[in-house]
Design a protein around this nucleic acid. Structure first.
Lengths: 107, 107
DNA sequence: CCCTTATTTAAGTCAATACTTAAATAAGTT
DNA sequence: AACTTATTTAAGTATTGACTTAAATAAGGG
């Protein structure tokens, strides 16, 4: 529960969202490569990466001096699971609405 | 893009997340009914609801003095769309990993 | 009209967070 | 060992955000 809100908080920042989105498309990237895409300082990027890692949305490994980051699917899967369960409810309610409108037409 | 980060920011707060989750399960609820589930003040709840409405995650209508809130599916659909596109990427990378491990076994 | 009920808007406070620069750590190269 | 490269940690500041109480708005009923 609270786990999920942390994931949402992580993705709520435009910089962090862009980082995750880019890692999804490009696979593995070093902290430096990631930072080159933004105008903010290196430390600022590092702090964003630390938060994403702590939240479980990205993995990292060392390669010499570099830190290589990539998406950690389990973190996104948790969001996917919630959305899928949520969809069950909202689709059910849309179905009820459709039925109600149909009833109206028929009278 | 930025639209999505606003949705994530809306769901990043535990109170707002709980509101949306409850609206999904219970359908329509008045501001008062929603607020009764939390220990915070009425105005605090009202502000959360205003933000959720502004972000497009909930709809509202008037019923006498009451404001009736419900989930606005389009808002959640946008998140669902992003997650589904994201999954394409992360599943593709998992497939690559699986193939690589398979290759290793075979040698 | 005044009163009650339901909710929002306004105004102010406190804590969280995103950023900065400077210093520290980690690893590789000469 | 000294030097360069890559990144993080530390420390301080400024903005954002969640909350409070008090006042305003909206709608219905006596």
């Amino acid at each position: 529960m609270t786990h999920l809100t942390n994931s949402f908080a992580a993705l709520a920042d435009p910089v962090r969202f862009a980082i995750v989105d880019r890692l999804l498309r490009e696979g593995e990237l070093s902290a430096g490569q990631i930072g080159a895409g933004f105008e903010i300082s290196g430390p600022a990027v590092s702090q964003h990466l630390a938060l994403l890692h702590q939240t479980g949305l990205v993995k990292r490994r060392r390669q010499a001096q570099r830190r290589i980051y990539s998406v950690h699917p389990a973190g996104l899967q948790a969001i996917s699971d919630w959305i899928n369960e949520a969809r069950k409810f909202w689709e059910a309610s849309l179905d009820r609405l459709e039925h109600a409108l149909q009833q109206e037409k028929e009278t």
